[in-house]
Simulated assay, not measured.
Amino acid sequence: MRCHYHDLGLCHSCTLIDQPYAQQLAGKVDGVRGLLAAARKDLHDLQWLDPVSGPEAGFRNKAKMVVAGTVAEPTLGILDPVGRGVDLRDCPLYPPAVTAALQQVARFARDLRLLPYDVPKGRGELKHVLLTVSPRNELMLRFVLRSQRQLDRIREHLPVLEAGLPDLRVVSVNVQPEHKAVLEGPTEILLTQQESLLMEVNGIPLHLRPRSFFQTNTHVAAALYRRAAAWADEVAPTEVLDLYCGVGGFALHLAGAGRDVVGVEVSEEAVAAAQRSARELGLPERGPGSARFGAGDATAWGGPSDDDGGVSDPLLQSGSGRLVVVNPPRRGLGEELSGRLENSSATDLIYSSCNAKTMARDLARMPSWLPVEAQLLDMFPHTGHYEVAMRLERR
């Protein structure tokens, strides 16, 4: 992939872009295998499936753009070392629908005279523009503002933006008042009647709300979910516990086939989205073939109350045929959850990670789990990032 921003020295985000893509992919596989093998000797014999890749350009479903420049000429992109805006609206990582929408959004900001936030001076209003595109090319747009001062003007003129972007479905304003490197704040104000963006993956309707997490590469995410479903079919569990379930990507792909699926996620917004998807799929909340979701900290989640009024740990409940799926953030599972999984009654484990270093650390804490198969999925071409999925079974 060629990128004129990189060639001109304006953007250095794609650190591997000068390497042929096949070389990038081989280097990631070798690096991840080495990191994991160093953590445990039994990982030297781990069976690695062929890596998964996708398009080299136009694959990102989400643009996170810093707004800078002036009222008359706003930039949407990144900041240079001294805090000036570098416009990246034509970044080749984005599909055409995102590129076209960013042009409209920049024009909208200019026409409304939304003052870009000046990081060095700590003043201004419009901090970020966050834009997500679905497989149907429908859009969700979030304005990140310093305050609510421009909220009414954005709401008043929103029909103009919607006329220019007929595929725009969800628009919100996020308020981030603090002067620090934080992408978004705690307050989200929805400006449209529709509150979620439909991200259909492998025929599964996933509903993405403004503050929910979703993999940035829809094509590779679909392959990741298919891999997990294939592994689940191999081990044929009767129960599935999905920790860090998000909007239900793994859980809903593993539902059915008589399995009782439970998903846990700290975000109540994501849980509500997963529950909606389960209803649309006709999945009951209890019994064989069911799927239910609850809000809670996956690291310390205790499960439903037992008959004595206490709190039971679902990882310690008896029963063969229990599969646990974990997809933690970059920090990994941590000592507490790794210990609970090590001492659990689960028979099978699928671990999906975006950070092989923390994955290796977690695996070292779980010696009773035998790695069986693994696969690298290149969610982030031209960078050193990736997703790695692994199936483990109880020794």
Score class of each variant (00 low, 15 high):
Gln47Phe: 06
Ala229Tyr: 01
Val144Gln: 04
Ala232Ile: 01
Pro381Gln: 01
Ser290Asp: 03
Pro205Tyr: 02
Glu393Gly: 11
Asp348Cys: 00
Arg89Phe: 02
Pro288Tyr: 11
Gln47Met: 13
Asp242His: 02
Pro92Ser: 09
Gly287Met: 09
Val247Ser: 07
Arg2Tyr: 06
Glu138Asn: 09
Gln275Asp: 03
Lys180Val: 11
Glu342His: 15
Val32Asn: 05
Glu162Cys: 13
Val133Lys: 05
Gly249Lys: 03
Met140Ala: 14
Asp297Val: 09
Glu268Thr: 13
Val66Pro: 05
Ala38Tyr: 11
Glu285Phe: 05
Leu16Lys: 00
Thr15Ala: 13
Cys11Phe: 03
Asn355Glu: 09
Ser320Tyr: 10
Glu162Trp: 04
Gln193Trp: 03
Asp45Phe: 10
Ala389Ile: 15
Pro328Phe: 09
Val105Pro: 04
Asp362Asn: 13
Phe214His: 12
Arg395Leu: 15
Glu125Met: 04
Arg107Cys: 08
Ser353Arg: 05
Lys62Gly: 05
Gln317Asp: 10
Lys28His: 01
Ser134Gly: 11
Gly54Ile: 08
Ala230Asn: 08
Arg322Lys: 14
Asp233Cys: 00
Leu46Ser: 03
Gln23Met: 13
Ala236Asp: 12
Glu56Met: 14
Asp297Arg: 09
Lys121Cys: 08
Arg286Trp: 02
His385Arg: 10
Gly258Phe: 01
Arg142Thr: 15
Pro135Cys: 10
Trp48His: 07
Leu190Asn: 09
Val173Glu: 14
Asn174Ser: 00
Ser134Met: 06
Ala221Val: 06
Val173His: 10
Val235Glu: 09
Asp297Trp: 04
Pro237Thr: 08
Gln148Phe: 00
Leu49Cys: 10
Asp313Cys: 00
Asp87Gly: 06
Asp90Cys: 07
Leu252Trp: 06
